[in-house]
């Protein structure tokens, strides 16, 4: 099948619609994050729950650039909703890499899509990163007023290795989500002919 490269209005609409569903579902999942400890594993829950949306989107998005744009739009909305500009930058880069990963070679395979989704989901790290970046600034300010005890316990709670662990955790969650998404696609959408 010959691939058309130029994005048409219909493709842009598809991106907008899937971005909306992704964001709404992400907000619903976000209510779980009200409990302070759970907000750390929020990106992982999102990676599992949003996988069917992404899988359906990838089957509709046959052109290069659509996954990048999806990530950019989601990132932009998250930035406007108050999450910091880092979210937009990271989600754009993740989307671009996922796009390259998915479209590399002549034919897509489930493995490539799954790898792409693992990369795509990493943008969730950017939403938590400020807690660590700011935590440091805050900690400097507080160590004068609160004493060493506070700083030690804060350091113990946020070791620097949390970020790599988070990235690995999201990747695992994305793989689980990918298989879950494929199951749902087969069960509901392929059978009813929506794809």
């Amino acid at each position: 099948m010959e691939k058309k490269m130029k994005l048409e209005v219909k493709d842009l609409m598809t991106i907008g619609i899937f971005a909306t569903i992704y964001i709404v579902v992400k907000i619903i999942v976000g209510f779980v994050g009200v409990i302070p400890i759970l907000c750390v594993i929020l990106p992982m829950i999102t990676a599992v729950v949003c996988a069917p949306i992404y899988m359906l989107f990838v089957t509709k998005a046959e052109k290069f650039g659509m996954i990048t744009l999806l990530a950019a739009v989601v990132g932009a909305v998250m930035m406007i909703a108050g999450y910091g500009w880092l979210t937009l930058v990271v989600s754009f880069v993740c989307g671009l890499l996922a796009d390259v990963m998915t479209n590399i070679g002549n034919k897509r395979s489930f493995g490539k899509i799954l790898a792409g989704y693992c990369i795509f989901s990493q943008w969730g790290v950017a939403m938590l990163a400020p807690v660590w970046m700011q935590g440091d600034a805050y900690f400097k300010d507080l160590s004068e007023t609160m004493g060493k005890e506070f700083s030690d316990s804060f350091r113990a709670m946020t070791p620097p290795w949390v970020i790599p662990v988070l990235i690995a955790g999201i990747a695992v969650a994305a793989v689980i989500g990918g298989f879950f998404g494929r199951k749902i696609m087969k069960k509901h959408f392929e059978r009813s002919g929506i794809i």
Binding site: L7, V9, L12, M13, I15, G16, I17, A19, T20, I21, I23, V24, G65, L69, L70, A72, V73, A76, V77
Partner: peptide, 16 residues
């Protein structure tokens, strides 16, 4: 390519 998907989000969000 950037503004149109975003406008769709604005339009579509209440529906979803």
């Amino acid at each position: 390519v950037f503004s149109l998907p975003f406008a769709v989000v604005l339009r579509f969000f209440p529906t979803v």
